[in-house]
């Protein structure tokens, strides 16, 4: 009896919250989830805006490598990447420089001051996208077909894909990353929801640290120094704060309630 009322409560609150916060958002097709349009300077200098896809990159690299070591910000456009930065070998140019190899092939170069029409058509437009390419969609479905499925987001269970060894994102880049001390992880913990009867959330400090690194979360996203002292609300999460910095944009979205609210109520 108690259990049933909890489930009902869960669904009821769920429906109202999704209704309140979700009406603004449209559901993206799986190949567009995690895609970021960067356009601080492109259009104003006559180039099409840049489209960066997380699904292409996160199969090869950890979030930590790009967002801590390369220095990309955690919201679209925040990094203020300039063509000159890429040319000097930073940001996209850390890898896209025509020299760094990946699968024994050189990764294509990024921006240039002088270039031929041919280079424009074969190279510039890979990033400075003129129009949505159906080729990329095809590549996505080919890539996704062998990976464990998930209902939301990219439609891929990235965590499982990694734990089953189907993808092996690298975490260190020579000359860019620091040789760090051995990782000492923080204990995992349960976050109690302040609404009576909501299933608790098990937050894995360990998994998140391996993916993201401590400094990506503390204190920028989570400044509370005492666990459980700050109460987060689902509305704040939907607004893109706290867990919502990553979940909804790149990591699995918040519509997947049960993936976070897992622990049964006592």
């Amino acid at each position: 009896m108690k259990k049933i009322s909890c489930v009902l409560l869960f669904l009821l609150i769920g429906a109202s919250i999704t209704w309140a916060a979700g009406t603004k958002k449209r559901k993206l097709p799986p190949y567009e989830f995690g895609s970021v349009t960067i356009n601080n300077y492109s259009q104003q200098s006559g180039m099409p805006p840049v489209v960066f896809d997380h699904w292409i990159h996160r199969q090869y690299y950890t979030c930590r490598l790009c967002h801590v070591d390369v220095g990309f910000g955690m919201s679209a456009g925040a990094t203020k990447i300039r063509a000159a930065d890429n040319i000097k070998g930073y940001f996209c140019g850390t890898c896209h420089n025509g020299r760094t190899t990946h699968n024994k092939k050189a990764v294509f170069d990024s921006c240039a001051k002088e270039y031929s029409r041919e280079a424009y058509n074969s190279r510039c437009v890979k990033c400075h996208e003129i129009e949505k390419s159906t080729l990329k969609e095809d590549q996505f479905f080919k890539f996704a077909q062998n990976l464990p499925k998930e209902r939301f987001g990219n439609g891929i269970n990235w965590e499982k894909a990694e734990s089953e060894g189907l993808i092996k994102p690298i975490d260190q880049l020579e000359g860019v990353s620091i040789n760090k001390a051995k990782l000492k992880i923080q204990p995992d913990f349960a976050l109690k929801s302040k609404v009576e009867g909501m299933p608790e959330i098990i937050f894995s400090h360990k998994k998140h640290t391996v993916w993201n690194g401590c400094e990506l979360c503390h204190p920028e996203i989570f400044m509370g120094i005492k666990r459980g002292a700050t109460k987060y609300t689902m509305i704040e999460l939907f607004e893109g704060k706290y867990c919502g910095v990553c979940h909804d944009k790149v990591a699995f979205p918040q519509s997947d309630c049960q993936r976070c609210h897992t622990k049964a109520v006592q």
Binding site: D69, D85, Y90, F91, E215, E220
Partner: peptide, 16 residues
């Protein structure tokens, strides 16, 4: 560019 990249990296590390 060096300033932009490394001040950000330094800030994350110091703040932690």
């Amino acid at each position: 560019t060096v300033r932009k990249v490394f001040l950000k990296r330094l800030q994350m590390c110091k703040n932690l």
